[in-house]
Design a protein around this nucleic acid. Sequence first.
DNA 1: TTGGACATACAAACCGGTCGGTATGTAAAG
DNA 2: CTTTACATACCGACCGGTTTGTATGTCCAA
Lengths: 209, 209
Amino acid sequence: MSKKATSTKRERDPAATRQRLIDATVRLMVQQGFAGTSVDQICKEAGMTKGGFFHHFENKEALGIAAIEWWGRMGTALYAESWQDSTLDPLKQLHRMFDIMVGFTRRNDDAVVCMVGMMSQEMSATNPAFQAACEKELNLWTENVAKLLTAAKKLHKPKTKFDPIQVAWLLNSLWQGSMLIGKTCRSQQLIRDNLKLARDYVDGLFQAN
Amino acid sequence: MSKKATSTKRERDPAATRQRLIDATVRLMVQQGFAGTSVDQICKEAGMTKGGFFHHFENKEALGIAAIEWWGRMGTALYAESWQDSTLDPLKQLHRMFDIMVGFTRRNDDAVVCMVGMMSQEMSATNPAFQAACEKELNLWTENVAKLLTAAKKLHKPKTKFDPIQVAWLLNSLWQGSMLIGKTCRSQQLIRDNLKLARDYVDGLFQAN
DNA sequence: TTGGACATACAAACCGGTCGGTATGTAAAG
DNA sequence: CTTTACATACCGACCGGTTTGTATGTCCAA
């Protein structure tokens, strides 16, 4: 209804323009952080002028929040294949998830970074809106993983007692920390090594059969 | 010879002034990041003027690097008790280290954040000097932990094969990621839960005796 | 022709960094 | 023991440029 765009030349497409701004923001902020990225720079990257920008977003902060939310949706879509295939053994679903994460480290087009992790570090101590937006995304990831761990617990006997939520937070922390260190030490292999150990750790929670 | 300072009143103490600037920088940047903290702000926090500031540091970047190095020295001093007590079983040394980390989460005066982790996220993708400074500190931590794991391997039979360096990087990543998430989710308990699981993980690498 | 989607021009604050100057300490010459 | 000469530590005004954000204009589609 609202989206037509049937004509060949669609000069004006506000939704696409908005998304172009978000894309540019993610691309730049993932490299330079929030404070290190200027609105001018974003506009230039998106092929847009300042007036246009402030037509779509109230201010820079609103754009940052939108970029975080977009990153969250992208992530959820990326993991969906593993999180939602309920025909699979939940432990196999977790394996699929690790495979996806390893795949994420292999996109050689750009660095292995998480927008949420970056904004968390830079902003969540001082900006409540960013803190809340990041927390929401981190919670979502953890909840999905915890759900799989809980399901796995019903199918496989755990070797020792463990709390799925705690383990999920552990995995989330490890994932974020791996990307942080992988970036600074310029090693994607380091991230993959960590993922391998994490996978073994998860397997080790359950009795082999 | 050059340092006397026997008199009671020492108005001029350049080394202390320099340190005051570094302290102020750490205090502010750990909250607001590098780009988010202005030189004026640092000067105000340190009770100093811009002119004085640029007498001590060539530019803002030099101060940032100095602050990272200072943080590294502080960390090494903090861990020294566990890392250097070679009379102890290396596995006990690792336990001591985890205790120190838990203690770090209990300093209720300010948040549980790592200057190196923050600068890593914000700067290492764009600023080679910051990247190198952060990488150095991360390497140092990992090497010390890897050394303990190697020593522990000689004293205790490992349950399965593992590479001490890989495990040390895993622990470093987990530690950094825990502080990142702990900050955003405003939970120091989460950090402690992760540390507990990490400790159990390390214990689980070796056969109980 | 009206309103949304952009561009242009501009404002006001703020940024890192410089500069001229001053206060203080040191050391050697007289 | 002064006096002179110089180095160090620090101050605060200032500069050019950049920042976010606004006010206004234009153009095209419905």
